[in-house]
Design a protein around this nucleic acid. Structure first.
Length: 324
RNA sequence: CGCGGGGUAGAGCAGUCUGGCAGCUCGUCUGGCUCAUAACCAGAAGGUCGAGGGUUCAAAUCCCUCCCCCGCAA
């Protein structure tokens, strides 16, 4: 039997496991990998290929990076491969109806949430930021509304409350590949039918902006600790101290309520006796954040002990939302 | 030539403006104290001050060139 002709769309890390799986399974022939163009990154403005492009090249697959896939010439190129089905994960561009119609079996999407929860651009970060106890991956048939098409399969994952975005993304990426392995063939055979989403239950999440990383000290310590895990590595969770940007990388929640105004740094006496060093905490709207790793603008990421050696005046400092 | 911060003992930093003994906190090692300790006391080791060149009686410090790290930006 001829392998199924597949075109894969993807850009971010979330898509890499799926691509590797599709390339390896001999039932499928990944004829083309469509990914976003290389973007200038880093201090030298070097053009960095997307994670999917790097993986595709290593797998020896053909890569295409169109700036726009709406134009007729782009559509013609995709049609020329005569794909049976297309698979998309973390691609980052909206597809037109013309593209959705190209393959006989349409285009399937892997989405990093349990749809209809968290439709949109940041399901992984939002699940962490909002303290979800469970999230997962959905395999669905795309239609012309965002994350709206009928469902094929889902797999849930229980959250520990410790995971960061890159960690969770890796876990979900593997689940995505697993969903393809279990269900893609059944869908193509017609033995797995797609089921309409419960649209009234849909929730949504926005694309993350740089300003979303700013820490609002009026919020609770519980919310801010989730913020730290959700918004790493980008845009980071940051605040301003003496006009300089200070990024918090790691912190723990303390339910001790400080009388100091939110955003004030203080030394929290350690419960264990004389010898131990005081912990460094920041007063929040509710509770306190015990700081573990920080990075001051222009400096390296440091454990709090090392940071305090160089910046003992940090205690008593006021952290603000803007440089001032 | 995108903008800015930085490189000084194992770690984090001060000292640079205004040239004149290589410093601070912590760690490490030795000894002491102690029922005991991450505490306390006494002592010690540990430096190509990122690299090269220049100016000077004298350079971490001033001038030139280069390398590397970080933030912004993307």
């Amino acid at each position: 039997m001829q392998p199924t002709r597949v075109i894969f769309f993807g850009t971010g890390n979330f898509a890499v496991s799926s691509l590797r799986y599709m390339a390896k399974d001999t039932r499928y022939d990944v004829m083309l990998v469509v990914t976003q163009p290389d973007r200038p990154q880093g201090r030298k403005q070097e053009y960095i290929p997307s994670p999917v492009k790097q993986a595709a090249l290593r797998l020896g697959l053909e890569v295409w990076q169109p700036e726009s896939i709406k134009e007729a010439i782009a559509l013609a190129r995709i049609r020329s491969y005569q794909p049976d089905v297309m698979v998309l994960a973390s691609y980052g561009k909206i597809l037109s109806q013309e593209i959705l119609d190209i393959a006989p079996h349409g285009i399937l999407n892997l989405h990093g949430s349990l749809l209809p929860q968290l439709r949109g651009a940041s399901p992984i970060q939002t699940a962490i930021a909002q303290g979800y106890q469970e999230t997962g991956v959905t395999l669905m048939v795309m239609d012309n509304k965002m994350d709206h098409g009928p469902l094929l399969a889902q797999q849930a994952l229980t959250l520990t409350g410790k995971e960061t975005t890159p960690e969770l993304e890796t876990l979900l990426a593997d689940i995505g590949a697993e969903l393809l392995r279990k269900h893609l063939q059944n869908y193509l055979d017609g033995t797995l039918a797609a089921q309409e989403q419960r649209h009234h239950a849909a929730t949504f999440c926005q694309r993350i902006k740089k300003e979303d990383g700013i820490i609002d000290w009026e919020k609770s310590a519980v919310d801010l600790e989730r913020h730290l895990r959700a918004y790493t590595p980008w845009p980071g969770s940051y605040t301003y101290w003496k006009g300089k940007k200070l990024t918090l990388h790691k912190a723990l929640v303390s339910h001790e309520q400080s009388p100091l105004s939110p955003g004030t740094v203080y030394a929290m006496p350690s419960p264990s006796s004389r010898g131990s060093l005081a912990k460094i905490a920041i007063s929040c709207g509710k509770g306190s954040l015990v700081v573990e790793e920080v990075q001051l603008e222009g400096k390296k990421l440091l454990p709090i002990e090392a940071f305090m050696r160089g910046c003992p005046k940090f205690v008593g400092g006021i952290l603000l939302r803007a440089p001032q």
